[in-house]
Every structure is written in structure tokens, then in C-alpha cells.
Write a protein that binds this DNA or RNA. Sequence first.
DNA 1: CACTCGTGGCC
DNA 2: TGGCCAAGAGT
Length: 353
Amino acid sequence: MRDEEMSTALLAWYDRHARDLPWRVGPAARAAGVQPDPYAVWLSEVMLQQTTVAAVRDYFHRFTTRWPDVAALAGAEDAAVMGEWAGLGYYARARNLLKCARVVAGEMGGRFPDTREGLLALPGIGPYTAAAIAAIAFDRAETVVDGNVERVMARLFAVQTPLPPAKPELTALAARLTPARRPGDYAQAVMDLGATICTPKSPACGICPLRAPCAARQQGIAADLPRKQPKKPKPTRHGIAYVGRRADGAWLLERRPDRGLLGGMLGWPGTDWREDPPAEAPPAAVEWRDTGAEVRHTFTHFHLRLSVRVAQLPADCTPARGAFLQPGDFRPSDLPTVMRKAFDIARRDAGMR
DNA sequence: CACTCGTGGCC
DNA sequence: TGGCCAAGAGT
């Protein structure tokens, strides 16, 4: 089967099976002349970086409700955006999202660049996202290569080279298939195929529109591709978090520095997280109670066991670290998940009720 | 190029 | 339970 026949088969499949997603202009509407909103495409693509559709849905709805366009987002407070992003992970995305919105609103008249090169120059927009926005929002014939596309190409052409070294090879194969017509629909079609049919485990080859030409299926090795280089084991780190509440109900919190883990997010004062046992580092000179419970949380490259200490703080407390926030000034949902877990432990503790 | 950077679901 | 995995980018 020729390349063009494969992309045509994929588009035909997409016409019948495209998922209905909140940020998507489906094939029928697009054929009728409906143009996607570049703001919605950009926002969804950034949220979808290394993140599942299921996890993104509610966040996308809350963001677009609160900030309907790029100018509104550009005018938002940093803390508001970080709080709304809390729980979605990879917080550099939120910091770069805001940077990007301010560049687009401030220097580009509120209009996103309509080329891959122009988009690539913006914060938080890399090779994948630049191509995706150019293709989906502006219908440019750019080749979109994400994890789905890598998997589909590796199987379709039975590429045995492991990732990440196989990346250039898979990108070249994906470029071969990218059609000049309907590149926006095509980009979403390949990714939908990877997300729903050509899945990582137990792919549904029986109902795949590309089952005939798929080399991996012919060889019976579809589920084994793409090959991947072995990963390093995750070490376990330890730390202590201090959840303090003042007599008037205010919580002792601190804003983490913009760089590094959980950068820019709200959190409980505490120790560094290292593989060695932590030494106590209380943020206020009072008696802290050990809840006896610890948060178990796994980050991308290490496991964390976080002991939780609690204390009732006096009205005249002057903490060495952090600042007091009234309950009305922060929502538990403003916390990244690991910090919300610590909060949940503290709230269940007898000494805090 | 290798490493950092979250989280939830799944088996 | 623990490793794997998801529409990657920045350094």
C-alpha cells in the first residue's frame, strides 16, 4: 500500500470515528468551514503534553471559563493560574503558559503566529506543540510527532530501533505520510488512532484501518513495539512537611521558588527531600506533633516518603519561613497533589481538630 | 544527549 | 503493590 493510500485510509477512519473533544473542531464542522480557535488549540495542546485526555477535560473547561481568550489569561495573576493548574503536574507548563500568553497578548496583538517556526519561538511550545498548532489551528502541512505517532509508525513499518534513538527515523516516516490536504484532520487522526486503537498494550489490530499494511501486525509483534531503552530505577527520598494553623484559622504556607520541582506552587514549609533521613527544620519555634503518618508519592524520577508534623500556632506567631493565608485566600485545590496529600493527613489528625 | 519535571489509571 | 504509560519542553 502506498503512503497516500494509508493517509487516506486514516482520514476515512477519522471521518467516522473522531472523538468528540471540547477543544476539537470535528471533521464535519471543519469541512463546513468552521475554524478552530487558536487559543483553545494552544491551551489544550499544552495541557495534553504528557497528560491524558481524561485528566485534561475539567482543567480545560475551568481555564476557558475563567479566561476565555489569551488577553484574559495574560491579565491573570500568577498565583491564580498556578492554583488553577494545581494537580495537573509539570508546573513549568503553567509558568510558560502565562509567559506565552503575555507575549502573544502584549507583542502580537493577541494573535498566535500561524507558522511552525513562529510558534516554536514561544515559551512552552516545542517541536511537537508548534507542529500541532500549525496543523490543527492553521491547517498547515506540518508533521506532528508525539508518543502516539511514534508508536503507530514503529508498528506500521516494524522499526526495531529502540526509543529515543529511533526518533529521527520515526519522524521521517511520519513526514512521508503527512498529506498536503486536510493536515489538521490528519494530525488528529493519527493521534486518535494511537490513543484508541494502536494502544501501548494489547492494540486492537482487528479493527485498525491500517491492519492490512501494518508490518508489525504481519509479524505478530505489534504489542512489542516500539522498543524502548531500559529506564533507571527510582531512588526513594525522605522529607518532613510542617502543617501549621494559627488560632484564627490561617494556614502557614510558602510559595516555592520558580525553578525546580513544583516551582511556583504553594506548599508546606519543610525539609529538602534527600535519600538520607531528614533533620527537623520547623518553620516556627513551637512544639510540632508527629502525626505518625507519611505521604507516599512518586515523582517522575524518585519516590518520596514525606512525614507530616502538625502544630497549633499562637496568634502572635512570627514564622521563620512562609506566610499565613486565611482559609478564604486559598483552596486546598490550589496545592500540588503531594502537598494536598499532606494537608489531608493533617486535617485527619486529632491534634488539628 | 541526558537529565529534570507530576500525576492518575491500569494491570 | 509497583512499574508502565500519557497529545514534551527546557536545560
